[in-house]
């Protein structure tokens, strides 16, 4: 969790070019959560009013959502409900690529 003590300015200075290096150094940082190439595009919602889906990795998230989603860092959408930021992944979930529907692939 030591990474969290780095200021946002530091992150800004490192910039996107440093992302690959940081990823190589290991996860657990806000920047490691940042969308990789081909990710990060907003995904269609299940229906109007459904929570937005997360277009990047979240399984290894450790209390880092707010680092970008309250500031707009990395072009992240800013949360419209800032008092509910302590448990984001109860409603917003990541997505693994273009999997076909479950019922089409389950063995009969």
């Amino acid at each position: 969790m030591g990474d969290r003590t780095m200021s946002r300015d530091t992150w800004r200075k490192i910039g996107i070019a440093g992302t690959a290096l940081l990823l190589a150094l290991g996860g657990g940082t806000a920047l490691a959560q940042a969308p990789k190439a081909g990710e990060g595009k907003r995904l269609p919602r299940a229906y109007e009013g459904a929570p937005p889906l997360i277009p990047h990795e979240v399984e290894n998230r450790k209390a880092l959502c707010q680092d970008c989603h309250t500031t707009g860092e990395q072009d992240a959408p800013i949360t419209p409900h800032p008092t509910r930021t302590h448990f984001c992944i109860a409603c917003h979930v990541g997505q693994t690529g273009a999997l076909p529907p479950f019922e089409k692939t389950r063995p009969k």
Binding site: A46, A50, L53, A90, V93, T96, L99, P101, F102
Partner: peptide, 22 residues
């Protein structure tokens, strides 16, 4: 896991949940 319920018969048929935890 949060995204699926019991034996998954319902939640796995929801695309967003299946893609969240396949």
């Amino acid at each position: 896991v949060l995204e699926h319920w019991h034996t998954g018969t319902m939640t796995r048929r929801v695309r967003e949940l299946h893609r969240a935890v396949p």
